[in-house]
């Protein structure tokens, strides 16, 4: 299989193209994804390649888009809905939660909803309060959805294939800070990354740093600095929030006896709180220190860069938080 150097954005696009070529019922719907080439250029070139039937420029109506895509999924299509940003998906919560997610259960297993809702989630650069949401924790609360947040180019590519081929609604969140990330990866038909498998991306013995999406990279940077202090940190990239691979997380915590959960969403009630709660519930006797959470500040995202940066966890925030349990 060919090795290609791709950005995270290109990896997503490559996967979409391969899936559209292999299945005529895969299509992309969203705001400005066609003629405008996509706000973050993930869908660049697709309109010219596939035309308006399969690359559907929609009105700016998130509930309508998710609803129509869900209805189409019911009769056999496999729509990929792009949210211009996951912040806008708040408008579509009723369609996503009350309709798409519950449909299989309410129909007693009659419905199949192969739907992907993907797009940038989290802070970018000075997009301020209404465009910087991390929504994955909200979705991971909902039975019937699957929720993934890949951190690497390889996972973006491989998990999107899994998402498109899944017969359940999948929320696929891409931190905008990752789109430019580059790596050489193997691509091709059989190449996919399963859901529900966390990844130990750095081995260590003194503590476990747990993150997903861009925060995985923050954890890795913090681990580098900790190494300079003689502390060996293991880093677990959660990758898939729902289903959640607790086994990999627990195995690491049982080895290191310390756990730090890092997430960009608001600290209170964010998904990191769920991970922390599970560790405490199931690994209490293995812990040598309280589980630490490093989350986003509990404020609407401010505009000015200086304040915005305060809100988004970075490696120094992680190091500072670790002081409590070293």
């Amino acid at each position: 299989m060919p090795l290609q150097e791709l950005t995270y954005r290109e990896a997503l696009r490559t996967c979409i193209i391969e899936e559209m070529d292999s299945d005529p019922n895969v299509l992309v719907m969203g705001e400005d994804i066609g003629r405008y080439q996509g706000t973050f250029r993930v869908t660049q070139g697709l309109f010219d390649k596939y035309g308006p039937k399969r690359i559907v420029d929609t009105p700016i109506v998130e509930p309508g888009i998710v609803g129509i895509a869900t209805g189409a999924a019911l009769v056999g299509l496999r729509p990929i809905v792009e949210m211009m940003t996951m912040s806008f998906s708040i408008l579509a919560l009723d369609q996503t939660i009350n309709h798409a997610a519950k449909m299989r259960y309410m129909t007693g297993g009659q419905a199949k909803v192969p739907l992907v809702i993907r797009g940038p989630g989290g802070a970018a650069n000075q997009l301020s309060a209404q465009h910087s949401h991390s929504m994955e924790g909200w979705y991971a609360h909902v039975p019937g959805l699957k929720v993934v947040a890949p951190a690497t180019v390889e996972d973006a590519y491989g998990m999107l294939r899994t998402a498109i081929r899944d017969d359940n609604p999948v929320i696929f969140t891409e931190n905008p800070g990752l789109y430019g990330l580059k790596a050489s990866i193997t691509v091709g038909e059989g190449k996919s990354v399963p859901f529900g498998k966390a990844n130990v991306v750095r081995q260590g013995s003194d503590m476990t740093l747990i993150g997903y999406s861009r925060m995985t990279h923050v954890c890795l940077a913090a681990a580098e600095k900790l190494a300079e202090q003689g502390i060996s940190a293991e880093v677990v990239d959660v990758r898939s929030l729902l289903p959640l691979d607790t086994e990999t997380i627990y195995n690491s915590v049982r080895k290191t006896h310390r756990a730090v959960v890092v997430y960009e969403d608001w600290k209170s009630g964010g998904f990191g709180a769920e991970i922390a709660a599970r560790i405490v519930e199931d690994c209490f006797d293995d812990l040598d220190a309280p589980v630490v959470r490093v989350g986003g500040l509990n404020v609407p995202m401010p505009y000015v860069r200086k304040l915005e940066l305060l809100c988004i966890p970075n490696e120094n925030d992680v190091l500072k938080a670790i002081e409590k349990i070293k």
């Binding site: 129509i68 869900t70 209805g71 299509l77 369609q95 009350n98 309709h99 129909t107």
Partner: peptide, 22 residues
């Protein structure tokens, strides 16, 4: 069979979209 008032109306458009696409 839907309980949110108005909530199923885009699904109806979606059924039509899907059938037409096929």
């Amino acid at each position: 069979g839907w309980g949110i008032v108005g909530g199923h109306t885009p699904l109806g458009a979606g059924l039509a979209f899907g059938s037409k696409y096929l």
